[in-house]
Design a protein around this nucleic acid. Structure first.
Lengths: 123, 123
DNA sequence: CCGCATCCTGATCGATACTG
DNA sequence: CAGTATCGATCAGGATGCGG
């Protein structure tokens, strides 16, 4: 994980890429939005994030936890109960995410159209 | 490219993922931000987007073009001159991108700290 | 100058099986 | 219930060489 996708020094000119480093894996956004509405159990996330495998869900949650965006709380029950929730830092990311999401709502159709046109012209 | 990363039907519950589908490849953001300041030639981009290979730059530009975010203009000179610029649709994406970038400026250090702490605790 | 084609590597992801 | 471990398949991305 974390793949050397970019260097972590603050002065790099590759500065912009960091914005996405935190967010842009296949499942992060989906998990993130699920947690917007409050804490969720592992099994709930598994059910609600359609198509995610156990491996990917765990991996994604670990990454979010490592980045300080998500809390993991384990209740000492049998069988175990684990709840995930956004941290305060995680909450600060919701606003930018929402804005990006609004852009999608407004313009994704245009993107789709552009693709069609492009694919048509370049048989 | 475009990897079946998600289905393109508008009604899918995986709606949120689309926001990133458009933007989240390794080099898209960097190219995008380069074009914010106006049209650029291929060779300029190649020089300014540090570390990008010809293959990746071309691939990235093609994808942005296909998505209708970038214009490609070829001047019939010898040797060829090619200029890239943002389309109006591309411009609409700048605002969300800028906001995400601001988040990075404000909180990336926190993420880095969280990572350190996490890695320390989970030796 | 701008790009395409090819080969090759390692990362990513899914599927499956197995634990506390 | 909430994971870990392992094995293949697939894919992104780098390096190189050629072409208009």
């Amino acid at each position: 994980m974390n793949s050397g996708f970019l260097s972590e020094d603050k002065e790099s000119p590759c500065h912009y890429r960091r914005a996405l480093e935190v967010v842009s894996s296949k499942w992060t956004v989906l998990v993130f939005y699920e947690l917007e509405s409050g804490k969720k159990r592992y099994s709930d996330l598994k059910r609600q994030v359609e198509g995610v495998t156990q491996k990917m869900l765990t991996q994604t949650l670990r990454q979010l936890e490592r980045d300080g965006l998500v809390n993991r709380h384990v209740y000492p029950t049998v069988p175990p109960t684990v709840e995930y929730s956004l941290t305060p830092l995680g909450e600060t990311l919701m606003e930018p995410m929402r804005i990006l999401h609004q852009w999608t709502d407004s313009y994704y159709d245009s993107v789709l159209q552009a693709r069609k046109a492009f694919d048509r012209d370049n048989t």
